[in-house]
Structures are given as C-alpha cells and as structure tokens.
Design a protein around this nucleic acid. Structure first.
Lengths: 225, 225
DNA sequence: CTTCAATAATGAGGATTTTCATGTTACTAA
DNA sequence: TTAGTAACATGAAAATCCTCATTATTGAAG
C-alpha cells in the first residue's frame, strides 16, 4: 500500500507521515507542486493525499493529471476550510474524498481505508501470493507451507517489496524505508545486497525462488512469476 | 537575511524591492543575466529570487551555478505561467520553490520564509553542551575533546535525549523513536538498558559521566552538569 | 529502619546486521 | 562481438544489537 502525500506544511506533513508509517503504509512525500508532479509521473501510488494549497502551483492540477493518466490511484484532498469552498463550488474536482483542516489522524486513516476499499478490496491482514504468504499480524512469512525464519530486516525488505509488487523499488527507497535517518549521503548498498541475498536463499530453500527480481542499476522488483 | 533579486521588469522589481525592504530584508538587485552572474559570484546570499526570463541569458543557468557551487543559498524561481510549464516538465531545476506571475507579495514573503526555514533546519550544525558536543553533520560526538566511537543506536539515543534536554523522556518514546514499526506491543526495555549502559560507559570514560539521569519508573533525562 | 517488589544495571553469549574482499553478471561503447 | 566497466552477488569476518540470567537499586509499605 503506497501513499503519496503532497503537503507543504512541514509540521502537518511529519505528523501525517509518522502516523501513516506506523499504520503500515509505505509513504512518499512531496512538498511542492513540482515535486508532486514528478513523483506522480514516475511512480504508481495506491493513494495520493493532496493539499490544494501548494507552493508552486495548484493542487487541482495534480488531481487532474492523476485522473487523466492512470486512474487507479485513490485521491484524497486536504484543504483549509475557507479555500475549499471556493474551489469545489461547481467543480468536479475528481477526487475520491476530501478533508478540511484541521482533521485528526484517525479520521484521515478512515478515509484512506474507505477510498482504498472502494478502489480494490485489498485490505486484508495478509498478503497472499500463492506459494508465498505474508501474515502482517504475526509478522510471519509462509513459503509453500513452510514458515520462514526471517530476521527483522529480511522481513521488512520482503514486505516493502511485496507491498510494491510489480513496481520497481529503488535501493535508495529501500534504504530510506528500512534505515530512515541513519544514513546521510555517503551510502553503500552492500547491506541491501547482503540482506536480499539471505532473503532469496531462504525463499529459494522453500520453493519460492523467483519472487525478487533485480533491476540492474535501479533496485529490485517483487514479481509474481 | 540578505536577498538577491534578479528580475528585469522594472515595475515588478521595485514592487518586490520596496516590500521586502519593509519586511526587514537586506536586498540587492540585478536586472540582467550578467549582472546576476557577477553578484552571485561575489557575495553570499541567504536567498536568491530569480526570474527565468532574463535579458542576456537563461535564468536556469544561474540556478545551476548556485547549485553547483553547493552554496547554501535558498533559490526561489519566478516565471510567467506559460513559460513555466515547458521548463518543469522532466526538468530538475534545482530550485527550492517557485512562483508563477502574477503573485502577491505576502505570498512571496511566505515562500521566502519557508525556504529559509527548510535551509536552516537542514544545516543546523551542532549541539554544544560544554564538555559534550554533538556534531549533527558528521554524526560525531566529542566529550572533553575526545571523539567518541558510538554505534548508531548509541548515537541516536544520545541525540534524542539531548534534543530533549532537561526533559524526561519515556522509554516508550525512546523505543518508538529508535525502532519505529518494529515493535508491536509485547515490549521489553532490556535493549534500552543495554544501550544506555554502553553509552554511559563511553561518556564516563571521557569525563562526561553525568549527562544521562535515570528517572525511576519513567525513563531518562539528559541534564547539563 | 527494614523488607519487599518493581525497576534498572550489568555482563556475557548468541543472533543479527554490516562491512569487506572477491567473484560474477549485465550493460556500454567501440 | 568483445572488451571494459559498473552493478550486483556471495561468503566470511567484524561490529553491533538483542536477549537472558543475575545483581543492584529504588520507592513504598509496614
């Protein structure tokens, strides 16, 4: 479940970010119109949370871009109450739902889930890929019936890739997701290589050898054969 | 706060200039590409406001120059709306934010402040507590002149406590901050005890034995002396 | 003041994570 | 097609982290 948050107020952004990450979403962030524009064009998201009032451009444009292109992405608008009224009046904004500031985070979460439920019915507590099943409640992975003994890093890498199935995930993105603030610049990807190797071995030893594909020069992709 | 404004339309320039001066900024002005180029090379500015459409050269070049010199100057682009779209498409212009004409001046001011806030947060250099100095850029901790060899967890615990100096920090808060999603309920604080112990030893071995105080039943507190 | 229970500190061992050196594979350009 | 180079894989060693058993300390109750 990958969410793009486009919001320029740092405080609010971090609040949302921390909350959604804790809720188990994979999040990416943009703080300007342009940044949001780029991310929308480069990746696929399950849901986009867009503040209408953005530096550098109108959030509505981003909504339109999302709608015109691949319409799989759920769209949740957030906006200050006063500016919202102007905009939605007589406007088909093309979003799936909207929230006015201020809102509380559990409300946001409820809306996201509602939007996603409408989109696809893919919000179970496990990810099932046939031979490979990831149980999110118990942090347990089953390959061809066998429970895998994964370390935390291995589990988290697998989960991150699986949640972005069929999408290419960059190494930077993996690093940021798993290590967060630790790494400032000056990066080696050796530890990713190492963990992916160990992960692949454990998968392969249990008949799930083909799930993790290397994308040369970019990163990895979780693919269902 | 010193700002360079590079803009060739006299009316707009004077409008901006008068407004920003009233807001308390120190301003300098350039009206051509060459003039802007020289000023950028001769002085250091906290922020540069650059019109893309300049006589004598492309404003983007100036942006690139500023970026490549790895100056810490914040960059704010202004541009006519129609020319902007061409340029941002697939272009990493390297600016911190941009505005399209026409804009109102309080909007400009807000953007400047936002850019500067992002910059200064990003480059805050060190936390100095006398004998103990935490260098954020290099992730380096110095105690009585000696560089400590801290592990990542140790560094992060120390940093977290130091940022909350004189405040009591709960163990749950520490755990959440350092381990995030990993731990769902069912918690033991043994690893915090362990890391704090090792951290204290390293501090004490270098004459900084009294910074971390245990708050029985709650957590820890970073205190000076 | 003493005892008790809960909390914290400690040391050591095992598990995990990271690094390093080296081998292999995939892309690029000629 | 073939070097040449950058990216990735691999195994093993080193560093770090976590767990566990034990000991010490704290605050509260008697």
């Amino acid at each position: 479940m990958k969410i793009l948050i486009i919001e320029d107020e740092q405080d609010l952004l971090e609040l949302i970010l921390r909350y959604l990450k804790k809720e188990g979403y994979v999040c990416e962030v943009a703080t300007t119109f342009m940044e949001g524009y780029k991310k929308i064009n480069n990746y696929e998201y399950d849901c986009a949370i867009i503040d209408l009032n953005l530096p550098g451009g109108d959030g509505l444009k981003l909504v339109n871009i999302l709608r015109e292109d691949s319409t799989q992405t759920g769209i949740l608008i957030i906006s200050a109450r006063d500016t919202l009224d102007d905009r939605i009046t007589g406007l088909d904004i093309g979003a799936d739902d909207y929230l006015t500031k201020p809102f509380n985070l559990s409300e946001l979460n409820a809306r996201i889930k509602a939007v996603m439920r409408r989109k696809t019915n893919q919000f179970s507590k496990e990810l099932n890929f046939g031979d490979l099943i990831i149980n999110l409640d118990e942090h347990k992975v089953t390959a061809c019936g066998n429970t895998l003994q994964l370390t935390k890093k291995e589990y988290n890498i697998l989960l991150y890739l699986a949640r972005n199935k069929a999408r290419v995930v960059t190494k930077d993105s993996i690093a940021e997701h798993l290590w967060g603030d630790y790494m400032d610049g000056a990066v080696s990807y050796d530890f990713i290589y190492a963990h992916v190797k160990n992960l692949r071995k454990k998968l392969a030893d249990n008949g799930c050898g083909n799930f993790l594909k290397t994308i040369y020069g970019i990163g990895y992709k979780f693919q269902i054969n």
